[in-house]
Design a protein around this nucleic acid. Sequence first.
DNA 1: AGCATAGATTACGTTAACGTAAACTGGAAC
DNA 2: GTTCCAGTTTACGTTAACGTAATCTATGCT
Lengths: 134, 134
Amino acid sequence: MTAAADRTFSISELAQEFDVTTRAIRFYESEGLLTPERQGQRRIYSRRDRVRLMLTLRGKRIGLSLLEIRELFELYDAASNDEPQLTKFVDILSRREQQLTQQMQDIQLVLREIGQLKAQCENWMEKRSGGLPE
Amino acid sequence: MTAAADRTFSISELAQEFDVTTRAIRFYESEGLLTPERQGQRRIYSRRDRVRLMLTLRGKRIGLSLLEIRELFELYDAASNDEPQLTKFVDILSRREQQLTQQMQDIQLVLREIGQLKAQCENWMEKRSGGLPE
DNA sequence: AGCATAGATTACGTTAACGTAAACTGGAAC
DNA sequence: GTTCCAGTTTACGTTAACGTAATCTATGCT
């Protein structure tokens, strides 16, 4: 049994590590995404909270709203329950899968366009710099 | 010369085709993304406007703000100008490329997780349905 | 002429996700 | 003791991207 398994974190530690403001972290709590303990009035974050913060930020990066992220947390927590819950869970996952796949295709399109545009630009610039040798 | 090359569109035609409200289309105009002609007071959209609307919506899907989309339009229009403009253009493209690549990786991660979760759920549900044969 | 319909203009409302400021607390360091 | 410092609460402000009326206009149809 290693002794550091229950490491905890202060709010500013997490803020630094993930490059968000403490305000944002408290806001996520107010939205039900984090549930830190208290030591007096100070918030004290567990490993679990840290993971949830990570997942929250990743969720945001892929365009989920805080509400959706929270729903996923709740469904995930309750997922070992009854079958209707499970079915709903799978439904949501499928829909999101659908959207994300679409999103990836869009991104790939745009990336290709960007590549072409960049090549074109660099082409032009080369020609210009080579075209007037004093 | 075919005669229909200069087809134009009404606002509600575009609204229908792309499944957005007319309000949104007028809003995009007010933000400088579209520049329809006028026939009296009615807006009359060209092929070019239609393409820009398409690009606007695609930009939104991949998480660009209307302002960013407008900047890209402007840069694209001015791209055949001088070299500093071109350099700036390539810069912006590179940054966006960077972000989009990151975003794609995030999405791929989540898609993998979703796949696993779905498999797990279906696994559970199978076991249950098979476990109680009356 | 009268009416319906599509479109225009103006303006206020809304939601999400925090930012920002003010005022307070509790322990640590000097 | 007092001065920092990190943290807390409360509350109002902000931005983006439209939604939602309300009111007005132009036009084609009957």
